[in-house]
Design a binder for these strands. Structure first.
Lengths: 189, 189
DNA sequence: GTCTATACCGAGATAGAC
DNA sequence: GTCTATCTCGGTATAGAC
């Protein structure tokens, strides 16, 4: 039941992860998906439109993953940890954040899915830190929104360092250190 | 005294920051620097060689800046803070880290300056955290190397978020939150 | 919905005169 | 050391038949 259109989207998602937006050519998508040029331009106006569809599909998938793992723990701080603890190979890059620096993402239309994705995660994490403070799982001397920014940054920065240095553990090291620091903040437990 | 060669390097540094490596064409470098095609290929074997020279120049410059601001404070933790407190507009990207995700940086020759840069900073920061722990400026329950990874990640990740969301304050927010967390770790002061 | 052929452009580099 | 002319290739897309 995999339609040609879905095949194109799945292939684009994979290539966006591997090579980013600018370095992914329509020809490459066609070669790997097995589709022909005609199909491509029948289903999509062009590369940009396909990429947007791919990014939105990826965003949905990652947010589902986020919701799934953070649903389990009862303590709010443990929800944050559950997300940070997902194992990551930093050398492969974030499936979403991989493409942020591509020059073409100056285009607001292309950037929109990315912006929505990060703002959504930031909102969810902010809420978790708020609740964690409200339920006295941690000190409340730090603004929850800034803690959320730090959590996402540690993760994304870990991917940057991993790519630059070849250290696949960089992201897990960064999030690990952050959780250790946060834990010294706990009031109980 | 600005030689054509130096002009080319300076122009490339600027363009690497603005557009990255892949999206920067020789023609663009020539147009902006005022040099001609002949000069370019006389001084450099090609785009790659120029980019490497530009990255090494940028690396020297940023490491000098790092050394300068971290030299002032006496306390080791304050040295780290002095670096983290340098104001940054996250939407402009890191002058060095901006290019890590460009596909061409799969090439080890191109990646080498980047790798050296981050490993150098990581070493320096690790040493600062070691000394901070040794002099009892902070608790020693966390591995200094992992703290260094977190510090660099918070910074680089802040740039990623800044670019994706348009929030120029993202990097300063992330480093600010990290410093606040580290400060709850202090034993004296 | 899908195919092949074609068109246009800019990237990256070389040639050879000055 | 610098200039202009030229070359090749791949990216992105359109045309029109099937």
């Amino acid at each position: 039941m995999a339609t040609t259109r879905d095949n194109l989207i799945e292939t684009m998602k994979q290539l966006l992860w591997e090579r980013g937006y600018d370095a992914t050519s329509p020809n490459l998508v066609l070669e790997r998906s097995g589709a022909g040029k005609g199909s491509f331009y029948h289903h999509f106006k062009g590369k940009k439109e396909l990429a947007i569809a791919a990014m939105e599909s990826r965003s949905d998938e990652l947010i589902e993953e986020f919701d799934r793992v953070t649903a389990k723990p009862d303590l709010y701080l443990e929800k944050v940890y559950a997300y940070l603890r997902l194992p990551r190979d930093a050398t492969r890059g974030c499936r979403m954040g991989r493409i942020v620096q591509d020059p073409s993402l100056d285009d607001p239309l292309l950037n929109a899915p990315l912006e929505r994705y990060f703002k959504h995660l930031h909102e969810r994490l902010t809420w978790m830190f708020e609740e964690a403070q409200r339920h006295r799982e941690m000190m409340n001397i730090l603004p929850p929104g800034q803690l959320a920014t730090l959590a996402l940054s540690a993760l994304q920065g870990g991917f940057v360092l991993g790519r630059a240095t070849g250290e696949g553990a960089a992201a897990d090291d960064a999030t690990g250190a952050l959780m250790a620091l946060l834990s010294t903040q706990t009031l109980r437990g």
